[in-house]
Design a binder for these strands. Structure first.
Lengths: 221, 221, 221, 221
DNA sequence: CATGAATGAGGATTCATTCAT
DNA sequence: GATGAATGAATCCTCATTCAT
């Protein structure tokens, strides 16, 4: 009994420590990016010795990937669920945006890390780390493609390459997350959900009837 | 005479060499990012010695900033000209997009560098390099703000914070550039000008008249 | 009674564990040498935790020396018995060789370890570990010296420094063990006993009578 | 002219520095062996910075191999010349021994390094470094095999496996070099040439006629 | 006694920067 | 101005050893 309890306590503690390190690493990677972050700084941030990093992770890259992987998969699954739900397009897009923004509000640092590594994901990259990130990102893109394709077939979206619409949606979302990070805004980005959806579907043009502008409230859907 | 000619030749050569180094640095920074790029690799790419780097630039950061600065200023000026021109809003936005896309087509590597460094430009950054980049980016944002503000006042754009519309426009643009880089597409991005402008103003929804489609009802706002 | 039995069981177990660790350590040290071997690898090979190593041994060096010591002493005693036996020289040498080769066949790994550490035992070494090994090796040398001295006095061996003859005998033996290890030969080295003894005493030259070479059986001493 | 002189001076200096590092490395590797030697200690011994090591060599292993390679090849060539010369067997062996001993006298540290790494060259080794050393050593063995084979065919050597005779010769030689290193003897080992050759061919037995022992000079070949 | 997470002192390697030529 | 060898601080990672459970 005691032995089992003992073992279990140890295991629980180990897992907790691993988590603490992951959290610390997230903060440091968010601040500095993968390359500029040092294991030393992560260790200090986590209040562990440098050696402890290597008890829990094989190396810096493993630490980084462990960090990314879980979250990426979780978000990917959530988004997939949305895309494959039985909803109508507009609702799907709305839910997609909401899911994304909620995830951002829950964990801004993760999105900062991702945002910083994305632009390095070029076609020519040889880097193992980047190849993995690239693959994951392309999966998300394909997911959005699917959604757009469907919308186009239903005649709800412009007759253009689905990918371009996907890019547009993700571009708007990313741009908002980037702005929130740039300014260090603390208010939830999820408040922007409606605006983003409207801007995506309806664009930036003022669509209210001419002549009824003054005093009218916004009539966006 | 001879001395002056000599001096002038020297000067011309020096400037040419500096330029060659900048071009080489651009390629390397684009491939690797600021941190992972090494002075050695830049020197090799430029076909100069490592020492030559320090004849023309104070240090690696100076080299990087010199690279960014010129281009950023030039683009900034071009964009400012557009924004401050006498055109009507739709044309301004179109020209803005075109200017941006043309600049991208002219020099993809510069945009790759910028894209990679942007996400690090958070509110808390202490890094001198990042503070400068941040300031420049905010200037561009203010420029777009101006344009949007004007559009809102004219009733041509939604009644919302101008910044949000600016973010949207830039988000769409950046997302397209990112896609071009991600896939290594060689065709000019400027072809997307019209699509981007339409998506920005009119959104992704299919706006064709009802009745001209097959049995579908149009649900545009 | 019960307490004593208990204690005795514990003691027996402890000794058994110690022995298991020594065996595992031997395999690892043989594979990697003292420096490249890690306590972790030894622990894994022994199927104990790293901590258990330090229950039984003060440190890695102590583990290594414990390993060497026992075997070295046992072999030293066996060889001393041979050298101090009442046999005639040729038989002594034969027994000496046999004892050595049998020991090798019994425990190749031990000889591999010894062979690898020997060459570091130079005159200038300051290393505590090496000084102890050096002392032990010199003891064996003195033992062989004795035997050779005796043979020289008896007129059975060349009139030269006994040490040189000892070196020769040991050199031949070591060279055979090295070869067996180099090629990973599994057949007992003790089969080489006669050949080694003959080569030591009679040399490599063909000593058969001239004119009777063909078809004659070997008449080496 | 001046530029060329300049370049040549630099090159000469670089080569000289490389040589100094190699010499320092040789001393350290001889003292400690490959694994226990540190780049730091080598740098200190060479009176250069640690970084300078990496200007001249790719890494520690490269430094080590550069050290071994040249010498090994040179000795190998010298030995091959001897083995493939037109001499009669006894002279060949004598020259072989002399060549080996002279090389030892010229550069004891090299032989110490080799001697220390040899025993790790087992059949199972996976280590790249060791595989290369193993291959080189086997080449030498084959060379000696050749010589012995020839002697056996000529009826000058025992009818036994050539390899065993080769092992014997090398064993005696190595044992003498080991003894010289163990005791730090400064007198040239080449003095032992005749003794070694005699011991190899004629063995350790006293071959003088009975009754003629006193006052007779040794008549072994 | 046994465990294995944690430590921290090295150790190999990289790389921006300097400087003599 | 150009060179590139040399430097040394910084960085990743390893591993013997400790210690709380």
């Amino acid at each position: 009994m005691q032995g089992e309890e003992n073992l279990s306590r140890r295991l629980r503690e180990k897992i907790a420590h691993r988590q603490e390190i992951l959290e610390a690493a997230k903060r440091v990677f968010a601040r500095k990016g993968f390359h500029a972050a040092t294991v030393d700084e992560i260790a200090q941030e986590a209040d562990f010795s440098k050696g402890a990093m290597y008890v829990h992770f094989a190396n810096k890259e493993d630490l980084f990937l462990s960090l990314i992987q879980e979250k990426t998969e979780e978000l990917g699954e959530r988004l997939e669920e949305v895309v494959h739900s039985a909803d109508d397009l507009e609702n799907k897009v709305r839910k997609f945006v909401k899911t994304y923004l909620d995830a951002f509000d829950e964990d801004k640092e993760f999105f900062q890390i991702i945002a910083a590594e994305h632009p390095r994901l070029t076609a020519q990259t040889q880097d193992r780390l980047q190849l993995r990130l690239r693959e994951r990102y392309l999966e998300t893109l394909r997911l959005v493609d699917e959604m757009m394709q469907e919308g186009i077939h239903q005649g709800r979206l412009r007759q253009t390459e689905p990918r371009f619409l996907g890019i547009t949606l993700l571009g708007i979302i990313h741009s908002f997350t980037a702005q929130w990070l740039l300014l260090g805004r603390k208010d939830p980005l999820s408040r922007m959900e409606s605006l983003i959806v409207e801007l995506f579907f309806g664009g930036a043009r003022d669509n209210r009837k001419v002549g009824s502008r003054k005093g009218e409230k916004d009539v966006s859907p």
